[in-house]
Design a protein around this nucleic acid. Structure first.
Lengths: 117, 117
DNA sequence: TTGACACATACCCATATGGGAATATGATCA
DNA sequence: TGATCATATTCCCATATGGGTATGTGTCAA
């Protein structure tokens, strides 16, 4: 088997930085494709393709207005990511704590003139 | 260009469900590869490959003990995911709120006998 | 030293990717 | 109707994937 399709779920869809950018832009409000093209400095077909992926996992929705298509964010499919990653909050806080401790020790031994490098 | 390498960052590494499972197992504590193989019911080489990816993005660390290699979790690279996705918390809560409202309306019209379906 | 164990790596394959370029679709306007 | 704008789709390509299978590497035991 190959890598799972980008349209499999939000995890895969959002692994692509461009698609995260698009969501970030849409977080400010509904936008037509050409706005996104301009803001992303990306070829229009590519933006359309990314939007297609995002639509397929439900992260964006479309509304037709004249000849424009207005895309808007739907955050709901992001919740599973949040829920999964949140479980590890303690894990990285622990680690940062350990780092702080190590740095403090280093600093102290320096202060002691023991900094034999 | 093709899809970004799975080893590019935690976003890509974690898009693969098997790798999330591995992290979930390691969250309970350090484990040798064979434990993971047994728990995941996955061929040993595949587990090793997934561990390699996780190691390359810093999500796990290894320690050699005799002929075993004990893997342990490092949550730090998950923090950027958390930070990114957290921005959207309000977005999905809004949506769920809208859903609730719609459901409540439906229920009410049913109660009114207006459920003309 | 040989064998068994724990694990990693190498190789093969089908697959879908993201980008580029060209073209199709659909709506508005003249 | 034809022209133009806004967007989507199609085709091409290099690339890396995840799984499978086979083999390499290092450690311990006899």
């Amino acid at each position: 088997m190959a890598r799972a399709a980008t349209t499999t779920d939000a995890f895969n869809a959002v692994a692509e930085p461009r698609r995260r950018q698009i969501l970030d832009l849409l977080a400010a409000g509904e936008r037509p494709v050409n706005d996104l093209v301009a803001m992303l400095d990306l070829a229009q077909p590519l933006v359309s393709k990314h939007l297609r992926v995002l639509r397929q996992v439900g992260l964006v929705e479309v509304r037709d207005v004249g000849r424009q298509r207005l895309y808007r964010l739907n955050g709901i499919p992001l919740k599973p990511i949040h829920d999964w990653v949140k479980k590890y909050e303690q894990a990285w806080e622990e680690r940062f704590g350990q780092l702080d401790a190590v740095l403090a020790e280093l600093k102290e031994s320096e202060g002691n003139g023991d900094g034999s490098d």
